[in-house]
Structure formats: structure tokens, C-alpha cells
Simulated assay, not measured.
Amino acid sequence: MLPTLPERKMVFKGLVTKKEDMNKLILTPLVHYPLPGGSALITFEKAEVAQRIIEMKEHVVELSYGEELEDLDQCRVRVQAAPVDVLLPSSLEVRLTRNSRSILVSDLPSLGIPEEALLDKLELFFSKTKNGGAEVESRKFLDDTGQVQLTFAQDGVAELLTQRGHIQVLIGKGKYELKISPCMSGDIANLQLQPSRCPRTVLLSGIPDVLGEEPM
């Protein structure tokens, strides 16, 4: 049985550069692999090296220093090698919901002014009815995309602005044409996982605690 997927809110703010990529979503998994006590992961440059170690299953590792030690002074440990299997997404279904009161503003100019100052200017512009706006309830700068999310206090304002697509905004001493896009939020409706083997990584187990406590 697969583990329960934790709930996580997601907002998709990707930029589409090619028309054929509009229905594609690139998912890069970040795997956290829990290790039990007495084990370690080793990743090699070549997959064939890892495969040979796994096929041998058991290995004796010499931990002693020096070549002329007596048998009583030598320290060896016996460890077991096994492949590493992780669960990776094979199918992802996302349910998108359009925020009826929010818009995304992009193509912002680089004016060298603080973010708060830019947010103030955008809020002032879009709060005026002559510009097609209304009272702005909240504003937020999205650092990872360079976009600004504006949320209005009234319904219908965001939809009308989105239909325009672009709008000229007076910022400082210049006018800039900004892009207006709908604000979409997504929830994972279905996620299927399948086991995948790491070709260059080996799991070593059976490692004893051979280091004593250091004297204070």
C-alpha cells in the first residue's frame, strides 16, 4: 500500500514559450530517502560498478590503519549491499481552479525601485475605476516568477481585466505595457507512484558502531 500523500497547496505560475508545450507539465521529484541505523548510501560515477557490488551482496571492509598490524589489532566489518528503490511519480492529475478575484501582472519593468514601492504604484493604478479596477484587497510579489498577484474586494473586476490581456500603466515617468493573466490555483487530484531503481547508488547495511565516545 502506498503512503498517504500529504496535503499541499500549489500555485502554478509557469511561463509557456512554445505552443506545443502548453499541455505539458515537467515534474522534478526531490527524494528524501530515510536511512535506518547502521546503514549508508554510496553513489558511484558508473552504474556498472554499483551493479557489481550489489551482485556480490556481502563485503568485508578493512578499517585498520597500517600494513604490519597483528590480527588482534586489525578491525574488519562485514556489510551487506543492496539496491536502492524509491517511489517516483508516474502519473499526475491536477485540478485547476481560477481565482475569481485575483489577477497576475507580468512583464514588469526593471526600474531599480524597492518592491514595496512598485506594489504601491500598481495598487494605486488598479484601484481606480477609470483604469478598469476597483478596491485592491491584497497584493503580493511572487519572487520566483517576477509577477505580482493582485486580489480585488469585488467580483467581476479580475475577469474584465483578464479579458483585456494587456494594459498600459504609468509607473514613475514612463508608461509600460503590462500583461494581465488569470490567477490559477491547483490541487493534486490523482497521483500514481511506481518504484524506480537508482542505477548508481548502493545501500550498505550492517555497519556496526565501531567508534567509541571521545574523552572530554
Rank of each mutant, 00 (worst) to 15 (best):
V49W: 06
E48D: 12
N99W: 00
S110I: 07
K130C: 11
V94K: 00
Y33Q: 04
L203P: 02
N23W: 09
L63C: 12
P208C: 00
I42S: 06
I103K: 01
L25T: 08
C183N: 10
I103V: 10
M1T: 13
Q154P: 01
L25N: 03
Q154N: 08
L150I: 04
S64Q: 09
D71I: 14
R78F: 08
V79H: 02
V157H: 01
H32V: 09
R139A: 09
L15H: 11
E137G: 06
R200T: 04
D85I: 07
L2W: 14
R76C: 12
S102T: 03
V169G: 01
K175M: 09
G172T: 00
L92Q: 06
V77T: 07
P182R: 07
M184C: 10
K175Y: 08
E20S: 12
L150H: 04
D187L: 08
R95V: 07
L104R: 00
L108N: 05
M56N: 14
E68M: 14
E213V: 08
Q163T: 05
E123K: 15
V94I: 08
M22E: 10
Q163F: 06
I103P: 02
R98E: 14
T4S: 10
G165M: 04
T201I: 06
E116N: 11
Q51D: 14
F141V: 07
K9M: 07
Q147N: 10
P199W: 00
T28I: 09
S64C: 08
E214R: 13
C198Q: 13
L211R: 13
L69W: 06
D107C: 14
L111P: 00
I54P: 03
V148N: 04
R197N: 02
V31S: 01
A47P: 01
E93S: 12
A81R: 05
Q149Y: 01
T201C: 10
I103M: 01
Y33S: 06
S205Q: 08
V11E: 13
P83C: 04
D155K: 15
L41S: 04
L87P: 00
T97Y: 12
Q51W: 00
E213H: 14
R101F: 04
L5M: 11
A82C: 06
E93A: 11
L204I: 08
F125V: 00
K128L: 09
T28K: 15
I171N: 05
V136M: 02
S205A: 07
L142D: 04
S91L: 11
D187W: 03
L63P: 05
E62C: 14
L5W: 13
M22Y: 05
A189N: 12
K46F: 10
L2C: 12
L150D: 02
E70Q: 15
L160D: 13
D120K: 14
Y65S: 15
A82R: 12
E55M: 07
T97W: 09
T4Q: 13
H166W: 11
E116S: 12
L193G: 02
R200K: 09
G206L: 08
R76L: 11
V94M: 12
P199D: 01
H59E: 05
E68V: 15
K24C: 07
A134R: 02
L193P: 03
S196P: 03
L161K: 02
P215T: 04
Q51N: 11
V84C: 02
F12W: 14
K46P: 00
L119P: 00
